[in-house]
Computed example of a mutant assay.
Amino acid sequence: MSNHETPLGKTTTSRLQLIREYVVLQAKLLSETVSKLDSSATEYDFEESLPTTAVGDDGTAWSVKAHGLGVMFVNPKTKIVVDAHVGFIDAPSVFDAWRLVQYCESKLGTGEDVKSWQETLDKLGSNGIIEPHAKHERHYVFK
Rank of each mutant, 00 (worst) to 15 (best):
V82F: 02
I80S: 07
S126D: 11
H139Y: 05
A41I: 01
K135V: 04
D57I: 04
K65H: 15
L18V: 10
V81K: 05
P76M: 02
V64T: 02
L29V: 08
E137C: 02
K143I: 10
K36Y: 11
S35L: 01
E32Y: 10
L29C: 11
T12C: 14
S35N: 09
E137T: 06
T13S: 15
Q102E: 13
T52P: 08
E131H: 12
S93R: 14
E119M: 06
D45T: 05
K77T: 15
H139F: 05
Y140W: 13
S35A: 07
V64Y: 00
D58F: 03
H133S: 04
S14N: 15
K79M: 13
L121P: 01
K77C: 08
L50R: 03
S14W: 09
D96I: 01
T33E: 12
E112M: 15
Q17D: 06
E48V: 03
K79F: 13
F46A: 03
D38M: 04
H139V: 00
V86E: 08
K115Y: 12
S2W: 03
V82E: 03
V23G: 04
H133P: 01
V114Y: 14
A61C: 04
K135R: 10
K107R: 15
Q118A: 07
E43L: 00
T42V: 13
V64Q: 00
K115T: 13
V71G: 06
L16F: 02
D38I: 01
S93F: 07
I89A: 06
V64H: 00
T110C: 10
L18F: 13
Q118M: 08
D96S: 08
E137S: 07
K115C: 04
L69D: 08
K143A: 10
T12K: 12
L30C: 12
N127V: 06
V55D: 01
D113G: 06
V86F: 05
E105G: 14
E105S: 15
K10Y: 12
R138S: 12
T11Y: 11
K123E: 10
M1I: 04
R99P: 02
K123D: 09
F73A: 00
S35C: 01
H67G: 00
S49P: 14
K79W: 11
I19E: 05
D122I: 06
L108R: 15
V81N: 01
L50H: 04
A54L: 01
P76R: 02
G87Y: 03
E43M: 02
D45N: 15
A84E: 10
S106Y: 09
S35K: 03
N127T: 09
T110S: 14
I130K: 05
L50V: 05
L37D: 09
N3Q: 11
